[in-house]
Each structure stands twice: as C-alpha cells, then as structure tokens.
Design a binder for these strands. Sequence first.
DNA 1: CTGTTAGCGCCTTCAG
DNA 2: CTGAAGGCGCTAACAG
Lengths: 370, 370
Amino acid sequence: MPVKLSDLDPSAVVAPGRATIADVAREAEVSKTTVSRYLGGEFAVLSEPVQARIEAAIARLGYQPSQMARGLKRGHTRLIGVVVADVLNPYSVAVLDGAEAACQQHGYTLALCNTGDDEARERQSLAALRSYSVEGLIVHTQGRNVQPIQQMAAAGLPVVLVDRKLAGFDGDLVGLDNHEAARQATLHLIERGFTDLAFVTAPMHGLSSRQERETSFRQVLTRHPGCQGRTLELDIREPGLMDDALRGFLASSRGRRGAVVAATGVVTLEVVRALRRLDLKTPDDLGLLGFDELDWSALVGPGITTLAQPTYEIGFRAFECLLARLRGDLSPPRQILLPGRLIPRGSTHLANGTGTPLGVPPVEKRRGQG
Amino acid sequence: MPVKLSDLDPSAVVAPGRATIADVAREAEVSKTTVSRYLGGEFAVLSEPVQARIEAAIARLGYQPSQMARGLKRGHTRLIGVVVADVLNPYSVAVLDGAEAACQQHGYTLALCNTGDDEARERQSLAALRSYSVEGLIVHTQGRNVQPIQQMAAAGLPVVLVDRKLAGFDGDLVGLDNHEAARQATLHLIERGFTDLAFVTAPMHGLSSRQERETSFRQVLTRHPGCQGRTLELDIREPGLMDDALRGFLASSRGRRGAVVAATGVVTLEVVRALRRLDLKTPDDLGLLGFDELDWSALVGPGITTLAQPTYEIGFRAFECLLARLRGDLSPPRQILLPGRLIPRGSTHLANGTGTPLGVPPVEKRRGQG
DNA sequence: CTGTTAGCGCCTTCAG
DNA sequence: CTGAAGGCGCTAACAG
C-alpha cells in the first residue's frame, strides 16, 4: 500500500497526490456518498451542518473532483476535441476562439490537435482525441480522412464540421454561406468596373469551401457576358508560381480592368506579397478582393476589400450544435450557413471613383442562392 | 436516422459504443491482463499465436484504450494544460503551435483554455485544467493569479511560464531575452538616426516582458545623451488615446527625428492604425519598430522593422521543459531566454539612407546584458 | 507464458 | 437524511 501524500502532508495534496473524495469524507466525518451528493448539488437532501462541514473540508483540502474519474463513471468527460487544419491560420484561430468561449460557458474544455494540413497527423489526432473520450468533435478537416470521422460519428460521437465538408460524410456543418458570399464578392468587382477577373486559390484538393466559392464565381460571370473570368489554382507556397500567374493574368488582360478574388486569407497574403515583388499597385494595376477579414486588411496599400466571415460565431455555433446533439437532438444533419459581410476598401476602388459600373450592365436581380 | 447505440445499451453510454479491453479479451479468448500486456508492448512475454489473436481482435473491434481509465489507474493522463492570455494574439498562437508540435511528438495532447486577458477566467481555467489532472501546465499568464499557480506548482505539478514572469512565483520560464532584444531594437533606431524615441506599450500591469523591454529601452538611452526618450503607456483599445499620444509625441519632438518602439505586435497594429488615421508616414514622419514579427510586417507602407521572437521554439522548449520535470528533473528553476532577431525594414530607414548615424555616437561597446 | 485479484476516484443503486 | 457496496476501463501485483 503506497503511502498517500495527503496522509503525510496535508499541504501537498494535488496532482501527484491530489485530495480525493475519500479525504474530504474523512475530514468532514461523513461518507463518500454524502460528499458526492454535495458535489452533485443535491443540497435539498443534506442537513445544514453536514453541508457546512463538507464545504469547510473541501476548502481546507483544496479539493477538486477529478474529471477523469467522473468521466469513467458517468460516461462523460466534458471534453470537446478540436481538430484544426492549421493553428497558424487566422481563420482557424478565430473559430477556435468562438468555440472555446462557448465551451467555457458550458463547463467544457477543449482538447486541441493541430494537423498542420497533414493527412496522417489528422488521423492520429482523431485517434488521440477518441482515446480521451471526448464527447464531441469539431473538425476543420483537411478533407481526406472520411473513414475515421465517419466511423466515430457512426459510433454515436457527435461531430461537427467547420468550413469544409467531407465527401461521403453526411453530418452537421457550420460555415460560411460560400455561394452567396462568392456571388456578392464577384458582383462587387463587376460593379466596381472590373471586367477581367481571376479566382486565385491554393490547390482545391476537393475542399468544399474553395470549390463552392469558385463555382459561384464562375456562375456570376456566366451571367455577365461583358466580363471574363478564369481560375488560377496554384501552390501558393511557391513564390515564383504566384508571380508568374499574376503576371500572366495581367499580360493577357490588356485593355481590360483586371481583378483578383483571393479564395482565402492565406491566399490574399501571398497575392499581396507577389504584388509587392512585381511592384504592382491595387487597384490600378490590379483589383483585389480577399475572403477573410484580417488584422491588416485595412492597412496595406489603399486597404484590401474583404469578405469577412463571422468566424467567432462559426466556432460558437459549432459548439452549440454539438451540445444539442449531446442533449439528444436526433434531427437529420444540419448545415448552418452564416452570411459573410463585404467590406469595401481601396483595393477595389477604381479611379473614376463613382462606384458606377463601367460599361457593364447593372447588378442582376437578386436570386435565391444557387 | 441512425440509431444511437447509447439508446440501446445504457451501459455503453461512455464515448458511445467503444470497445473495452474486456471486449478484446473475449474476442481474442484471453484475459484482460494479457491484452493489457500486449498494449503495454510486453511482447517478449507473449506467445506468437496470442499476439496474433489480440492484434486481430483489436483491429476487428476498432479498439482504442481509454486514456481516462488508464490515467485513473496509472496516475498520468498524457494531457498538458495550456492557459493562453489571448488566442487571438498571434504571439500566443505561434507559441501554441510550437507546444502542440512538441506534445504530439511525445504522445501528449493539449487541453487549451483561453482567458481573454481576464483574471477570473484565468483562475477558472487553472481549476478546470487541474480537474483534468493535466500532467503539466504551460501558462501565458495575465499576471495576477500567483496563488493558484504557486499552489499547483507546490503540489508537484510542473508549471512553465511563457513570456511573462509571475511576481512571487519562482519557477521555470521560457521566453525572449527581453533585455538584449530591447537593447538591440533601441540601438538600431539610434544608429538609423532617430534621436527622439518613444516606447509605446499597453498598460504594463506589472507584466515582466513589457517592463523588461521598457527598462532596457531607457537604459540604452541613458548611455546616449544625444537622444531622448519617453514611455507612452496607454489603453490601446481606445483609438483616441493612441492618436493623441502620437500627436503629442510628434509635436514635442519638433526638429528631431522621432521613432516609436511598439512593445508588442498588438501595439504595433494599433500604432499603424493610428498613423493611418493621422495620415502620417513611416519613416519620414515617424520611425517605427515593433516587437513580434507578423504576417503583414513587410507589407505595410515601406515595411515595418520588427524584432522577431522565436515563438515556435519558445512553445517547443516550454513543453520540453515540462517533460524534463516529468522525468524527474529536480534542478532549480530555469529561465530559458531565447534571442530575438531584428528584421530591418523601411519603417526605420531614413531618407539619407546610408545607415550611418546622424550626429550620434557610434554604437556602444557590447556589454553583458544588465 | 498466462490468469486472478484488487483497486485508481467517483457515482449510483439500494438499504437503512 | 445518510451510508455501504458495486463497478466504470484499465493496470499492477501476485499466483499458477
């Protein structure tokens, strides 16, 4: 029988030798059951003096119930797993912030795994989180690991996807209304007088958010014959590629007003870097509109027009979604699509400055999103 | 609608429907102990056929041991708690990234709490993490909760502070070598010909990193009588205050070259915003050097000179520090101070452009940091 | 080589 | 109103 620290030194009762419910019971001279009831808030069933003694004992011992043991018994851990594609991506972090806030409000704690956009690490993270018996999973997936996620969900673990859908997985999702947002973004460019548009994105890899944005981008252009558009899909970590792509785009759009729609904040960053290397200015040399509002959006050049996502809310709602499932909501999978917000800035403000289209038909009648 | 397992089998309420070691044992027709040994990697003690059967059973059942139960028994959870002052702060996230990477390498998982720079929430978070029996704590403290941290550390829980010291707590710390970094930053400004410097910071609130930077800033100026300096400490979330402060500084430094040292990335951001509102340009109207390298440092105006912190390494080392303690390292508290790196950019590059001091004595002899 | 037994800290019947 | 007993999933003695 190992000697318990608490028996030797009442002050040294934590992590290695944390006080247990038994210690409290002894200290308060009641049974463990009674203490447990106190912890469970069943005050109606406890006599005043007993309550007081327990309270005192807890304070004296600095006792804090073990979530581990609790979880083992009750079958819940109050732990929510979060798998994030890339913590360094401001989008991920902003979502994380919202999720964390919601969790804290409801007494949950986040277990975080970063996958660094790596498929294998995503799988590992999923497994790790499962081993911790997280009660729910918020996943900003990298897109390829349907099976493990599918499997965990099938086993009854609530899973909510954020931003990116997963082909073959029919579950809850919270994200931006990409179709409407991309439509709005593209129309804004057209209204501002740009007639040659390029949708710049990192390799799609089947990632739904990128694809949806691109699809809507093209759809809008189809309805505006006076404008032309193309999609530039490239490895943005290769600086040379971006430079070439932009240069090529500009060269081929001689005589027309060119503008770029950057598919994400990360892409926006690389576009801006390339523009700087090429000594090109927005909006005169090239218009620019980027998805994701960033700290610095307003500060670069004349300011960058962005399509802001309600990131905090996305994270918050993602947790709420999980919570609903945990409380027994069995309704069919939901997709919560939140509206984006266009923030017009200098990077799309052409010199003629009226905001009136330049030989382009006025904005189409608003239709239901496609 | 998929039927939830938990609805069918009340005993399977834990992380719904997970196979347990008992299931594997039954499936493989061995005892739980044997399976446990297999899991523990004690292959030398297991016959080939048994090994094979267990392996197969595990695969068939998709079994994964429960860290909770394991932790309860063995007394460790492989969980590291992280308390972050503000997840939206790029510094925090960058550190988090390094810590997460290190954790993953060693089979640990992060439990994350964000305090939103709030004292009470920091306390709550600490308590929550404790209830999860985290094995160690990485804390980017808000600075006021010495007692709980002190107490947890005293109880044998390894704690490592990141970036900010905690008055009254003598424990491990990983962070920037603030003295040397601030010295380097200040000297750079002087060398570049600025003769009136302002150290701009959010309220110090006794936060060590801010104070150390400020102290070194002033120390350097003391040794350069040709230059003058002051400290501007203000609530940076109040836009008006920053504008006033900067305007005041500029007004009083007529005839001298003024420059600002922003104490952190967050401050840098607000300074840049203010400059924009005031229609001031760096470096001609005002020089600018900011602590923390940010995504956009190179992109604003002529580029912002920064003092980059090795954030990833700080996080990584913080975890390693914890690991050493977990492995029994009982040596006295260590302070791991990592060097910063100055990244000179346009915001401190005066028109005369030679990089030679402007009527200011050459750089002082390098001394040991004070 | 393998199995049996006894808990880790807690909560939940079921008896007082 | 209170307590005793059993067990969550797992591992660590102790037998065989």
